[in-house]
Design a binder for these strands. Structure first.
Lengths: 337, 337
DNA sequence: TACGTTTGTTTAAACGTTAAAGCATTTATG
DNA sequence: CATAAATGCTTTAACGTTTAAACAAACGTA
């Protein structure tokens, strides 16, 4: 129990009615013509008794919980735990409570978490949608729920989102390898229909095209999520064992981590011969002999922007207008820095 | 809005009074003598209308929010984000909501987060207490709040906790290095008064003593939290540059990460000559040439146990009895495995 | 002086639940 | 057959808020 002090206690002590106290403490004293004098008394007593509003009662009345639900893929994954941290901090500042849920990239889990949060009557959502969740999210939007997608989006779904410019990022990433002189640049991606992964592939294609390099389908490898260890082993074997590729662009952090591990497993020298580029940052790269260049995602900015967008939406600052924000990535981990 | 269906709607449709519906839907039908027949009708209609209880109203009445507050040092730190994930999952299964807060090891931030959660009327807390938080937690306990400490504890504070056996873990860790034949084993710890850090040092002392090795104060380095980069640089320089130590036992993951980085910075060969042992696991070690042995903490077990303990406490299964759980660590990352 | 307006307050009602007490009707008990 | 007990339900009240409407007193204006 915080403090079992209610408006009633204050009202009694000051000698006024309960609504008056409510008006003053919610800052609506002026507009409800509460005299300066009583307002002061009320504030003083409230402080004395260390009044804490009963949020359940308030929510019951106002139909707002000041809580937002955040569904990420996996909160123990560094990318998402960093994002969670930013959202937590930002929400704290704005006096919003956050509840987190991990979808594990599974639609069934996602739906369960979503339902859980709906039953908790959250005021809005920040969601990194897993594959196949378009229908659920579309449903959510129909009930005019406040939703901001993050990190991912759906091509033909009119929803707010905050993502990075994946095409541009992949383009830069691939360009970096091209400029380094690599000729047979492979890319490893997840087998997924999520739009942002498509974009990453598109960026890769575009870079090759712009450089006048032909696209070799054998250099584009898609890994199944569940069996990434086995698949990655095979992929690395084929790409490197057969000298198919001289550089690899990993499209996610987790792919890179597994891929690099597999490369190291073969022969410590492999990594020095093969060019590597990664989408997203990872502190573990510091442990490697050579610097690993990566495309740095502005996690902090994304989290902040998503939360700001959502809360503005909840408070219906811009009524109904859909906001789409695409942030820039930056090149990091290069030796010059 | 989930569904704006209330008990009233169900009651109207079935043709009974509201309390009857409440009784049935909360499983108290039998004890309130509701006939099988009406109970069935109520359940059927509830399902039809997709009734979702209004938790605010329920909380207002019952004074329980089915929410627990979890305060960790930093949710973007892998150890804690893994812990968060376990707690999230476990709470989800039990239909409890979790709100997280990061203390950043700062007492001021901790107190703010604590107050925030109290204002949210959480039913209980799982806390990894930062240095200096004993008074706040003691206060919390006085108001008979349900608290379970995790990862850390206070020597002379009678509170529930779930930790690892730090003395035993450090003993094993140091013993491992001793058995490997190292003669001048250093340890690097944080400058902190937290009891679990003391324990880790004690385990180290004990191992040396048992092996008949004398304790060299120069081999025990304490790093300031804020300035760990600078301090660590100096420490590594002194220990290794002067050939003071032939092995280092890092007492936390973050210390090890920084320490290893510094060692690699000097010369890639250093790490092969100096024995290293780390408290806590880190997937980044896979990127190093040599295997890094570590003491593996049962994060999953800890999180699960803490949550179970807390919820049993909330439901006052064991009334007032303090529970102290100390779990075993295991040796990991050794080459033989 | 009368009456509309402003000012400061109170009363009433509601949000959706739960818990206790009340009230018929039926069934068991001697 | 009278009465007690069990059965199945309803009524009442309350949790702590917020919001709208009502009210009284003081003031301004004619």
């Amino acid at each position: 129990m915080g403090s079992p002090v209610s408006l009633k206690d204050i009202a009694n002590k000051v000698g006024v009615s309960i609504p008056l106290v409510s008006y003053v403490l919610t800052g609506k004293g002026k507009q409800n013509r509460v005299s300066e004098e009583t307002a002061e008394k009320i504030l003083k007593v409230a402080k004395e008794l260390n009044y804490q509003p009963n949020l359940s009662a308030r929510s019951l009345k106002t139909n707002k919980t000041k809580t937002i639900g955040v569904i990420l893929a996996d909160i123990s994954n560094p990318f998402f735990s960093n994002m969670a941290r930013v959202i937590e901090d930002e929400a704290f500042l704005r006096d919003y409570t956050v509840i987190f849920g991990s979808s594990d990239e599974k639609i069934e889990k996602f739906d369960k978490v979503l339902e859980f949060m709906l039953s908790r009557q959250v005021d809005g959502f920040i969601i990194a949608p897993p594959e196949g969740s378009k229908a659920s999210i579309s449903e959510l939007l129909k009930n005019k729920n406040n939703v901001v997608l993050i990190d991912r989006y759906f091509e033909d779904l009119d929803a707010n989102f905050v993502i990075v410019d994946n095409v541009a990022a992949s383009l830069s990433a691939t360009n970096y390898l091209i400029k380094k002189g690599y000729k047979r640049i492979a890319t490893i991606a997840y087998k997924s229909k999520l739009a942002h992964f498509d974009d990453r592939c598109r960026g890769y294609y575009k870079a090759l095209e712009q450089a006048g390099m032909s696209l070799d389908e054998n250099l584009v490898v898609k890994i199944e999520r569940g069996s990434s260890k086995k698949d990655m082993g095979k992929a690395i074997d084929e790409l490197i064992g057969n000298d198919l590729a001289d550089a690899i662009f990993f499209q996610t952090n987790t792919l890179a981590e597994e891929g690099i591990r597999q490369m190291l497993g073969k022969d410590r020298e492999t990594l020095k011969k093969i060019g590597v580029m990664v989408f997203d940052q990872n502190s573990a790269y510091h442990f490697l002999e050579n610097h690993i260049p990566y495309m740095n995602q502005p996690i902090k900015q994304m989290g902040k922007a998503a939360l700001a967008m959502l809360i503005d939406n909840i408070q219906s600052k811009y009524n109904g207008a859909i906001k789409k924000l695409q942030l820039k990535t930056t090149l990091g981990g290069i030796e010059e820095e």
